[in-house]
Simulated scan of single mutants.
Amino acid sequence: MKAVMVTGPGVNEFVEVEHPGVGPNDVLVKVRACGICGSDHMYTMYGGIPPRQGATPLGHEPAGEVIEIGANVRDVAVGDHVVTNPMAAADGITGSGGAQGALSGYLVLIDAVAGTHYRVIPKDIPFEVAALNEPMAVARHAVNRSGAAAGEKAVVFGAGPIGLGALLSLKAKGVAHVVVIDVLPTRLAKALQVGADAVINSLEEDVSARLIELHGAAAPVVGVRTTRPNTDVYIDAAGVAAVPTTVFGIVKQGARLVIPAVHKKPVEVDFGALLTTEISIIMSMGYPTEIFEVTDDIIANWQKYQLIISDRFDGADALQALELAATPGAADKVMVTFD
């Protein structure tokens, strides 16, 4: 079969690989959809991931159909639709340095355990929506790390896939009011479609003043003369220095800033100025427990999640899909589907 692999720095190619075999405890999945992640471009630029430098299979956002099971497998049947846990793969993280990638025809789940390696989903959920499960788990982990609770007020910076996923998870947690901030009108319009209570274009509006209108004014902070928004949680899904810098200048006492975004440049922080705010700065990476936690919300609200997908490609055009996803500003969530 053919699999998309990083074959050198900046080079992706279709490579012929052996069709995976199925052992007595394994589950063979026909990949039906796979999302493209920003990290796929990073792996390409690096020329792969050790120990597979120059030969890294890509694709870690799969959904598919079970087509064969081992003799000892009991919790899934041929024909079931599933999402998988790339981080639990026995042969290395799927599409992120492991032996297999989901931008291929098939995945074999070695020593597969239901609830650990895969989860069966209803057959009426489109495969392309189910394939959002992995990035939405990243967003859910950020929300879990924030401790956001029912009745609180939150802000999400960045209306890309992770930001929209965070919006949906915040609403699922019962957060009372969620504002999404971005600089692109098309993204802000989509955020409203997905369920944002309000949006702010930070190029055109004063973020602090608008948040005070939306969330009210917080109690004064000792040593700070400015009035600040009564916002409880900020999530940085943008990864640009302007986001934490903005938050540091407007945060109320005891608020939380969670950063799931990858910052490629250092951010200067004046901890002296932040001391009396008692802000919690929380980093967030991956999905230690959230990979199948988020699945229930996707099943219940798949029409909203479907709005996150911006571009679709057939499997034969996976290289073009990777190229589009790597072009700044050209697309939001790129999805590859397979017959």
Rank of each mutant, 00 (worst) to 15 (best):
A55E: 12
S310T: 15
A142C: 07
G105T: 10
F338V: 04
V113N: 05
V334Y: 09
G105H: 11
A137V: 03
F313G: 03
A316T: 15
E204K: 14
G70M: 01
A89D: 15
T44K: 14
D80F: 10
L324I: 04
T245H: 07
I308P: 04
Q193E: 15
P244W: 06
A112H: 07
G97F: 13
A130R: 13
R312N: 09
K264D: 11
G92K: 13
E204S: 10
D314Y: 07
S39C: 06
P57D: 09
V31Q: 10
K2T: 04
G151V: 00
D232A: 15
A330P: 03
A300H: 09
P288V: 01
G239D: 09
I281N: 05
V240Q: 02
G97M: 04
M285I: 14
V180L: 10
V247D: 07
V17P: 01
M1I: 02
L58C: 05
I298C: 04
L322K: 11
A241W: 00
L107M: 07
E16Y: 06
I36Q: 09
G163K: 07
L211Q: 13
I125K: 08
A261N: 00
D182N: 08
A318Y: 09
T277D: 01
A63W: 13
Y305V: 05
G23R: 05
A139V: 01
G64T: 06
V83H: 13
A131V: 01
A114S: 14
V221R: 07
R225G: 10
I281T: 06
L58I: 01
V4Y: 06
A217C: 08
V224I: 15
P266I: 05
F157Y: 15
L103S: 05
L307V: 03
V233P: 01
G174L: 12
K123A: 13
A321G: 15
P62L: 12
V233Q: 01
H141P: 02
G10D: 07
L109R: 03
S39G: 12
K264Q: 12
A189V: 06
N12S: 08
G64W: 15
L168N: 00
K123P: 00
A189Y: 02
E134M: 06
I36F: 09
D75E: 15
N144L: 11
G174E: 00
D124M: 04
G98E: 08
V129Q: 08
A159M: 13
G10E: 05
E204D: 14
A176T: 05
P122Y: 12
S169M: 14
K333I: 05
N301W: 13
D182I: 09
